[in-house]
Amino acid sequence: MAPTNARPPAMRRARPALHWIAVHTTAVAAALFFVLPFVFVLLTSVMSDAQAMSGELWPHEWHWSNYTEVFHTPGFLTWWRNSLLYAGLGTLLTVCSSVPVAYALAKFRFRGRRPAMMLVVATMMLPPQVIVIPMYLVWAQQLHLSGSLWPLIVPLAFGDAYAIFLLRQFLLTIPREYLESAKVDGCGELRTLLRIVVPMAKPGIAAVALFQFFFCWNDYFGPQIYAAQNPGAWTLSYGLESFKSAHGVNWNLTMAATLLVMAPVVLVFFFAQKTFVEGVTLTGVKG
């Protein structure tokens, strides 16, 4: 034992205990920072109109009916439907179109593979605002599809740079021997992809699908550009922003609506916690 560590026995026993207290006090303080906002939002969401504007923290009466009222505001259910459509269909298309591209980039040898990969990364880094104006003009003035979610969904059928990037990172980890042996068995590349690669890449695909679902569900900029002119095409994320002023309501109903938009994401998380955390790790650690 090094001399620096020679302390009186009592202190050496006290140190882990002090350490435990320090760590857990900090943890509780941090947890308050992360959790209290949810608590305040929940408490306010069941207050009466007048109390929501009073600054008091604890509801006098619990108005659970605020939630039914939110559901009955015009449009709320339509927003739900649209969000599900955008997120559901968008995720499906992204995965279907990105897997073959990622596979080719990860496993095929061809000239221009590296530049292609660099272009994928470059598109990934590009702020969406850079190209939105000409894109909007095409959708609105040539195709007359603004005021719907199609301008947001259709491009996802042509691969998403972020999804391609993540899937490629994941596919790189599949040993080449598996693929070679499949080819020896007489599988074409397409069958190799479907029979061998996709089952092996399930965790990666699941993570990418989850990311894409969350991205679409949370997207505000896209619906603001393309759906704004038609309230029938609004999504939850977009509708919520104007909820307070458009419906002339106060903080209580706004907070109830906020929780109702958060809920599905949180539910999905609890069901797919492991996939999700693995996915987040994938984005970083494999880099």
Binding site: A140, Q141, H144, G147, A228, Q229, A246
Partner: peptide
């Protein structure tokens, strides 16, 4: 109902059936 000028502005520029 509940249509703002921003919406009118955008929709008339976009044109189309709706």
């Amino acid at each position: 109902g509940n249509v703002t000028d921003a919406t009118v502005n955008q929709a008339l520029r976009a044109g189309g059936g709706d």
